[in-house]
Design a protein around this nucleic acid. Structure first.
Lengths: 404, 404
DNA sequence: ATATTTTTTTTGCATTTCAAATTAAATCGT
DNA sequence: ACGATTTAATTTGAAATGCAAAAAAAATAT
């Protein structure tokens, strides 16, 4: 039922207002109170009241008015911005044999980053927690502040994760299944830990700081070892009922198709993932000719028909998967995120053309499709973005409790 | 951004409260004020205030307290229910050569229904509007009241429809493309018209009156001539950015696959739709052996290997499509809606088993999958459900404007 | 009859938002 | 230079709204 909002009790309402204004400020670097009022529909009087609370709490600060201050009549507008010093936030991504960490301020600006090799890919929760703790301490040392300064840690793991519950169904980095890993970490870290699937984290980062900044309905496709998807609907990550969300990489694109690393058959990932490409190419060539994607690409460019056909199939399968996503979600925007190198073969005009041909046709423009190349720290930054949002919410909530 | 609600201005807030309470009452036939308070978290004082407004407006009425009134101490609870007399609502479904109409009261109880043949399947908007007007007048006559008594009309069309804008991109019943068909109808009808895709309407009906009554996250799959899907997320129909939503039937399940009536290849519908089954069976048997689905089914039951294989493939494709929906949406419940007969072959333990095998695995229960057989009037009832909800919202909004 | 229990309504208060008025801080015009 | 004008931010006062607590209502239990 319920077409629009619920009735909110006074406290909640105020909390919502504060959070909403904080969000608007974060979405635009600098913004004057009058523009906050216009953007939110809240009256200027209320904006003044709410922003002064946020100022008091130290979450935002006044800055010089934006750009063309000259030539404007009237009282000059005062810019408001997130106060970076308010909090230090860590974002952590645990990959197969690597921990990447970014520490940012509350405005999302990077303070320091660090990477650390892991001996093994999969380990017990206690051990991984210790490794993370160690890596985090090292990173803080690099930044020149104690670990106790951190207000929150965001952590991205590959696997099936119920983020609202901070619960890991399964992760390729952990030996245990069904474990509250955030709780394990919180025992040795001095601040709250927020856990999520890595594709969702990238979506969060795009929404807070990236190509989705002024868009509340979009989809992020991540291509790394596997294929992931993060779905933002009405400004929120869509996670489904179990909280573990949207398994684009394991949607089936072929009945009884290729074997996937998840053990099932016909998964999209089993056609477009890097391991899948190499496997297919080596089977077709009857040997171990290709050790890296790069060698496969160059063979194709040199005209090797077999290499071309392997990449070709991957491209078409990817276009098909994307078309299905468009047919099902009708998103406003699709962001392909990842290290450009690893999916150059999957992003070309031919993919777009093929995809278009499979999209149910209406007389309306196709969703915008764009590539956002973040580099190696993409995942860690996403984790930081998530933690920033959660710490924001916590702080605002605490504000609501304390101040009147 | 914005994790939870927005700040609502006073009027909106009250409107939300009224709407929320009306929704709770509708969801439970009878309910006492104290239980509304418990269900919504609103204080009893406010529930009294809001319900008295709704009573004054004539939208709800007091009824005898529910069941076991004996043996309970204390002041007896007074049941509240939707006042059926408040409005008369029509739900209309235009199928290929048939208009079905249901007229219900405001509580969703059927008053009268009627069906009318159409000479042609596709026609100009003006002509279809006249036909609908005529059919509606006849139906009202059957019910013994003038057409002017109607407060709202819900209309379901097959095709691509942007419901919030009441806009038809394309419909198999209309010659025109890109037309505001609701506006055409409203010129000759005495009440507002609400237009939607038929699968969404069924989802709305399930949510208001059916198997989704106490569930805010579920998916409805409809199987008729084609295959449709309605997605309910957080209690609202998900429609995507163009408003034309979720084209499950045209997701691609096979690269370069079977030809679909939409002109594209590999659509799910082209494997499981009734026309697709007959086509495939007749091609395989090299003739025109099967005129109806029933004959194909009976051939399969008698052991005809070819017929079995056609049905078998449909079943597996359907399981694959369902699995993808589960992998992508992770819904709490899946409702297969339609005339049972037409998809008995698609609903069996084997489908569930195959589907399960393709669902990404977590240690959590599968979504509940259930069949809801509505009979022929399913679509029209769905249209009525939609109109009831919209008329509710309009009335509550008007209340907010008028009363204080 | 009186006490007890439970639901509903009333009362009074605290909060909150907004419109309108006011103040603040700049440029424009002469 | 100095008032007029313009625009932004703040203050003020009024209206609304939701809730806790108290009161009233309506039943059963003793």
């Amino acid at each position: 039922m319920s077409r629009s909002g619920k009735l909110a009790s006074q406290g909640e309402q105020r909390e919502n207002g504060r959070q909403q204004i904080l969000d608007v400020i974060r979405a635009s670097e600098h913004i004057a109170r009058i523009d906050i009022a216009k953007a939110t529909g809240v009256s200027p009087a209320t904006v003044t009241a709410l922003t002064s609370e946020l100022l008091n709490a130290g979450l935002i600060c006044e800055v010089a008015p934006e750009g063309n201050t000259e030539g404007r009549r009237g009282r000059p507008r005062v810019g408001l911005a997130i106060r970076g010093d308010a909090h230090r936030i860590a974002g952590i991504k645990v990959a197969r044999r690597l921990i990447s960490i970014v520490i940012t301020d509350f405005a999302g600006h990077e303070i320091v980053h660090h990477e650390l090799a892991l001996d093994t890919g999969r380990m017990p929760a206690q051990v991984l927690a210790q490794e993370i703790h160690r890596a985090l301490k090292e990173t803080c040392k690099l930044g020149g502040f104690p670990i106790a300064d951190l207000s929150g840690v965001g952590l991205g793991l590959a696997g099936m994760i119920d983020a609202p519950r901070n619960f890991v169904y399964w992760s390729s980095s952990l030996e245990e299944r069904n474990i509250h890993f955030a709780a394990v970490l919180e025992e040795i870290l001095p601040c709250p830990v927020f856990l999520d699937n890595d594709a969702n984290l990238v979506a969060k980062a795009e929404h807070l700081f990236g190509a989705g900044r002024n868009c509340d309905n979009f989809i992020v496709i991540t291509i790394e070892h596997g294929v992931g998807m993060g779905v933002v609907i009405d400004g929120k990550i869509y996670r489904g009922t179990k909280g573990c969300g949207t398994e684009f990489g394991h949607t089936k694109v072929q009945l009884e198709g290729a074997l996937c690393q998840c053990g099932q058959r016909g998964c999209l990932e089993a056609y477009v993932g890097d391991y899948a490409l190499l496997r297919e190419a080596n089977i077709s060539s009857g040997g171990e000719r290709y050790q890296t994607l790069a060698s496969l690409f160059s063979a194709a460019q040199k005209g090797d028909a077999m290499a071309q056909s392997v990449l070709d199939r991957a491209r078409r399968m990817f276009a098909l998967g994307l078309a299905n996503v468009v047919n099902i979600f009708d998103p406003g925007k699709i962001i392909l995120a990842g290290a450009r190198l690893s999916f150059d073969h999957l992003y070309s005009d031919r993919v777009i053309d093929e995809m278009q041909q499979w999209i149910v046709d209406v007389d309306a423009p196709m969703p915008e499709i764009l590539v956002h190349d973040w580099g190696d720290l993409m995942w860690a930054k996403g984790a930081a973005a998530y933690a920033i949002e959660e710490v924001s919410a916590l702080t605002v909530k605490r504000l609501a409790g304390a101040a009147g």
